[in-house]
Amino acid sequence: MKKQIFATLLIVVQFSAIGIIIYRTNLEATFNFGNALVFLSVAIGFWALYSMSKSKFTISPIPRKKAELVNNGPYGFIRHPMYLAVLMLCLGYVIQKTDFINILTYTILSLNLLIKLHWEEKLLTEKFENYRFYQQKTKKIIPFIF
């Protein structure tokens, strides 16, 4: 029960931060770096969802009972492409409106996703015996870097 409450808290913080950033920011109609990040993040997000379709996607860091380890598509490069997509999407918005509230909210979102990511990795290591090998051959969230 405590696991589910913690997972719910992480999800609420995540979606609240995303909502605040998107609500406070209007994307410019012209093509710029912020818009490019938004479009690229959507492409990465859809690619990750498509690759994970057989494993029953969930926003919770707690893996489903019948989950399968996915290591194709973007998951062949990084373990958490959906987190990367969320961070890129919100960064694209923050670039459009860089102010204290958006930067603070983006920082909270980033820290929240790092906490969620590390906890999820612990749970995935417990669920899948070959997850440690997968961790050795891929980066967490940024290809070739982290």
Rank of each mutant, 00 (worst) to 15 (best):
P81N: 04
L124H: 00
N32C: 08
L104T: 08
S55Q: 02
F100K: 04
N112P: 05
C90T: 00
M82A: 10
L84H: 06
K65Q: 02
F46T: 06
N35L: 15
Q136K: 11
N130Y: 11
I20Q: 03
L124D: 07
K66M: 06
I59S: 10
L87R: 04
L84C: 06
F39H: 06
Y75A: 02
E121D: 09
E28Q: 10
E129S: 15
L124P: 08
R64K: 09
N112Q: 07
I95P: 10
N26T: 12
G45F: 01
F39N: 04
L91P: 06
P61C: 14
N35K: 12
V70Y: 04
L114D: 05
I101W: 00
L111A: 14
L49R: 03
I59H: 13
Y106W: 15
I103F: 11
T58I: 05
Y50N: 09
N72Y: 02
Y93F: 15
E28H: 09
V42N: 04
K139P: 09
P81F: 10
K122H: 14
I78F: 13
Q135L: 14
L123V: 13
I59K: 02
E120H: 02
Y23M: 10
Y93V: 11
K65Y: 14
A85T: 04
I78T: 01
F77L: 11
M82G: 11
E68P: 14
Q135G: 06
S41V: 13
K116S: 08
T98C: 08
D99E: 03
Y106A: 13
E126M: 12
V38W: 03
L91H: 07
F46I: 09
W47S: 15
F77D: 05
R79H: 04
I115G: 07
G45W: 06
E68G: 08
L84Y: 02
V94R: 06
G92N: 05
S60V: 08
C90F: 02
H118A: 05
N32T: 00
L40A: 15
S53E: 09
E28A: 09
C90Y: 12
S110L: 12
W47L: 13
F77Y: 09
G92S: 13
N71M: 11
M82R: 15
F46Q: 13
T98L: 14
A29Q: 10
R132D: 08
P74V: 12
H118V: 10
N72M: 11
F39L: 14
S60E: 05
T25V: 01
K122L: 01
I115L: 14
F31G: 15
K56N: 11
E126L: 12
I62N: 06
P74K: 13
I21Y: 00
N35C: 03
I101C: 07
N32M: 05
P74F: 10
E129P: 04
K122C: 01
F31A: 15
